[in-house]
Every structure is written in C-alpha cells, then in structure tokens.
Simulated scan of single mutants.
Amino acid sequence: MTEPATTRRHEHLDSILAELTALEDPRVRAANEARGDDHGVNLGALRVLAKRLRTQHDLALALWATGDTAARLLALLTCRPKTFAPEQLDAMLREARAPKVQDWLVNHVVKKSSHAEGLRQAWLTDTDPVVAGAGWSLTADRVVKDPDGLDLDSLLDAIEAGMGHAPDRLQWPMNTCLAQIGISDPDHRERAIAIGERLRVLEDYPTPRGCTSPYAPAWIAEMVRRQNAE
C-alpha cells in the first residue's frame, strides 16, 4: 500500500534535518553565536544543499516550523516567495529572532514578493527595532532601484532624528539608507554627508584593507568616485 504523502514528507524532513546536523561545525557555531546567530552550519554548504533540493515549498514550510535556525535559513532558500500572504511574512519576521534569518527573510523572500512595498510602509515606523530595521532595509533597496515617489527629505529627517541613538539592528539599515540616498541622488548628497558627519555613526568601525567603510560620508565618497571613474 502506498504511504500517505504527509508521511513521506515527514520522512523527507527528517532526512534533511539529519543532513543539517551532520553539517554542524562547533567553530562555525562559536563564530555565529558571537553575532547572535544560534547555528553552526557553514552558509556555503547550506546553499549547496538548497541548490540540490531546489524549490520545495511544502518542505520549506516544514523546515520553518521546526524553529531551528539552520532549518529556517534552508527554508528561505527553498520556498516560493510569491506564495506568502503579507500577514505570513509579518509573522515570520516577528518570530525569527536570529539576525541571519531576519536578513535572509527580507532579502530572499520579502523583496521578491508583491507585498514588499506595503510591508515597507507598515514596518518603517514599527516600535520593534528589528521590524523597523526591515522597513529601512526595504527603503534603502527602493532608493537604489525605484526612488520615484519616495520623500527623500522626510527620510533624511527621520534618519537625522533617530539614527544616532537607535539600536544596532535598526541603526545599520538606517545608515545604509542614508548612504544610498547620498550615492544615488546628487540633489540630496550634501545633506546626507552632513548628517553622517554630525552623527558619526560607524565612523570607527573596523574595515579591512580594500573594503569600503560603512561610515556614510566615506561610503558615499567612495561610491561616487567609482561612478565618476566609469
């Protein structure tokens, strides 16, 4: 007799979870935990596994439901982003407390969804700094790709008023948005640089040789230099 599809799916889930367990590396876990991520799976190996599995939305939902961080990261690489309702995406963001899961949810799923703009507007002023940070991440992306209709002056007002004392999970995407405004819009570049110089957010952030500093005035200057050199 043929086994029910649900049974087969659960067995498949168990085999994938076993693979994730086998990929666990204590050194990777220690490095990730220092950044707030509770998993020990190398992300390159995770992407290889996702590429082999391809899109399997039911499996992705089952992986997400485990609550395990590595399983949720795999879920975000194997789901169908356009099938989620905005309420589902909002709930997923609020329950996913691992920073890497939150980042991948926004970048791999929400940005590919038709609900991205509505969620951007709803999240931007949320009282939860993680949720608001997701709104600012989506806003920075829109500044680069589709700035028409954005009130850049109001965005700069909000950044100037709130970025200096914002928690890290909110400060980083606000800073990214500030830099992208300065890079993408010459009319607002001078003000963006001035805000960055006054707030001095990430001015002393350790930056490896050859990499661009996240300090907004330096970031803007370098990217504009590259644009002019092309």
Rank of each mutant, 00 (worst) to 15 (best):
N42R: 07
R54E: 12
G36C: 01
S15V: 13
T127V: 12
A62E: 10
R200P: 06
R226A: 00
D68A: 13
A85C: 04
V224P: 01
F84S: 03
H39T: 10
R72V: 04
Q171Y: 14
A221N: 09
V41E: 15
D126E: 01
T66V: 11
D168H: 11
D146T: 11
C79F: 15
I159N: 15
L199E: 03
V109F: 10
K100C: 01
V224L: 00
R226L: 00
I183W: 00
A122T: 13
E19R: 09
D90V: 11
A140K: 05
I16R: 06
D187M: 04
D38P: 04
D148P: 14
L49W: 06
T207S: 06
S114A: 15
K100G: 01
R142W: 12
E117G: 10
A85H: 06
A85P: 03
I195M: 01
T125V: 13
M174C: 07
R72E: 02
R142Y: 06
N175D: 05
P206M: 08
A65V: 10
S184D: 15
A71W: 08
T78D: 15
N228G: 07
N228M: 09
W104E: 15
A30W: 06
I16F: 09
M92L: 10
R226C: 00
D58Q: 11
R27H: 13
R97F: 03
D37A: 02
P26S: 13
W64P: 15
E24I: 08
